[in-house]
Design a protein around this nucleic acid. Sequence first.
DNA 1: CGGGTGGTTGAGCTTTCTCAAATAGAGTGG
DNA 2: CCACTCTATTTGAGAAAGCTCAACCACCCG
Lengths: 239, 239
Amino acid sequence: MNDRALLKLRARTPISHDEEAAIREGIGAAFTEAANRTTIEMGRPLTTCTLLIDGMMACYKDLSDGQRQITQLHTPGDIVDLHSLTLKRLDHNIMTLTPCRLAPIPHDGLTALCERFPRLARVLWFNSNIDGAVHREWELSLGRRTAMARLAALFCELRLRLDLVGLCDDLSYALPLTQSDLATCVGLTPIHVNRTLMELRRRQLVTFKNKRVTIQNWPALIEVGEFDPAYLYLEQREI
Amino acid sequence: MNDRALLKLRARTPISHDEEAAIREGIGAAFTEAANRTTIEMGRPLTTCTLLIDGMMACYKDLSDGQRQITQLHTPGDIVDLHSLTLKRLDHNIMTLTPCRLAPIPHDGLTALCERFPRLARVLWFNSNIDGAVHREWELSLGRRTAMARLAALFCELRLRLDLVGLCDDLSYALPLTQSDLATCVGLTPIHVNRTLMELRRRQLVTFKNKRVTIQNWPALIEVGEFDPAYLYLEQREI
DNA sequence: CGGGTGGTTGAGCTTTCTCAAATAGAGTGG
DNA sequence: CCACTCTATTTGAGAAAGCTCAACCACCCG
């Protein structure tokens, strides 16, 4: 359930049982959302955050001619709009890419939690700063990496992030997206993504087939994507 | 001095005199840094944040072939590495683009400040979330906007951000960067930036000459860049 | 006056895009 | 189990945005 959120927090920083209990208390009843639904709209005032329990979501912005850029992918255990706690309204949309299981976390409770456990406030702030780090890495991809490197780096990132919440089976993980979804992430055309995926397959680096990514040559994939996991801050730490 | 930082904070949210005094207390002695110096290196453990008092700085990441992407521009009044408070080491470098006046803000004092004034903690968190919003807008630029639109959007953003701290004279502001610096921001070649700037000039939208941006047609510039200031969260608010 | 940086120009080339269509698969109703 | 749809993937060919390389020019500053 929402255990993935705890898994994700604990991967980086210890969480006491009191803190865990307080967090759980703040989470509302889970509900289901169909795929391809924009559940959180840009600009709308928010009074709750949303925890993604299961499924995949994306933050995105559109241009007037319909072009779309996904700015961030969310995996289970993410509070997809944690920043709404301070921003109150978002500068982007958030949609489900697959059927999703979600749970609300009211702002009130979260704010109270932060005052009662200042350490948890730092943990949450830390987590939204990691989102920032991922944004920066994506800026590097979008601005400077080749199509090939963008996809390689994305597959590397997702492997580590999914592994964090127990959703990666060594070198293979479920990725329930279409090639078009990937294109929207990496700032390319679906057609070009298709050709690049074929090339990655041909070079025996990764396969993306039947909604599943299988990494065939991890060191080579890292090399092609110039992937450095430091930006994911995966190591255990005090805070 | 560091009054620009207060200006910036107060533009979005009220700050009491007690809070202001506490903030000022935490700021160390200002010092000077030459242009084009990487003052904060990726990965190095940090125990202070850095306030940019005067000048311009940039966060950037490099690829192995020397290609560079600036992920964020910093203007006076920004705490350029506020996220280091929780991250402890950064996932990117930070350099001066011009000669800069800087001041350290030790982490210890800042953490104490946040516990003493939980409201200030939220204000700071809010500000790092705005950095995230700017990252998202840049991802949209890098992923989907044309060269022309990228530059137009950047000039719009900088106008509003500089205006916030009193560094914009109506439709004109100092921007002490080279065309190459701009190229590093928008993910293009200096040569292509040069040609695009010429086109913006020809169309009488903006001029960038002698390190100064002069906007000649604000509505048209907004239109070309598809600029929507919402992501800068410029309105006054409670927090 | 000379050297250095930053801006401008030209020509040819690459990566990626566009448009159009064919193929493959998954799910549905009969 | 088959025909039918719908979506997702694959293929091809031509076009365009932006890149590379190589100069050249215009300052600015000592």
